[in-house]
């Protein structure tokens, strides 16, 4: 089973999303929560990195945190999946372990 990575900080403020992208393996899942959801937006300075990640990793974003900050599915990069808290729980259960990039 692959690993689940969570990231909770905006990539425009912290390096944790970049750390996660460079230290996660192909086939792993990355879940953006809290302020990290803005990393999923189209047209940003990190969008190319996320688009590249979508090609060989499962990239998800917590929908409630996205909505809380005023964004919706229409605003995010193609291929990034939206999950709710129940989906977050499923991701934790389905992966062998979890690393929170803080």
């Amino acid at each position: 089973m692959a690993m689940l990575h969570t990231v909770n900080k905006s990539p425009f403020e912290r390096n944790s999303l970049n750390s996660c992208l460079t230290k996660s393996k192909e086939g792993s899942t990355i879940l953006l929560i809290e302020d990290a959801v803005v990393g999923a937006l189209k047209g940003t300075i990190v969008a190319d990195k996320l688009t590249a990640a979508v090609a060989n990793k499962n990239v998800c974003v917590l929908g409630s945190d996205l909505n809380t900050r005023g964004f919706t599915e229409a605003d995010i990069i193609d291929g990034i999946k939206i999950v709710d808290y129940a989906g977050f729980v499923d991701l934790v259960a389905e992966h062998s372990n979890v690393q929170s990039w803080l």
Binding site: N8, E34, D35, S64, D65, D84, Y85, A86, V89, D90
Partner: peptide, 16 residues
């Protein structure tokens, strides 16, 4: 937000 996120996660996990 950490405690809020954990709380929502716990609630969802227990519901499942």
């Amino acid at each position: 937000q950490a405690s809020d996120t954990a709380y929502q996660f716990a609630k969802a996990a227990l519901e499942k």
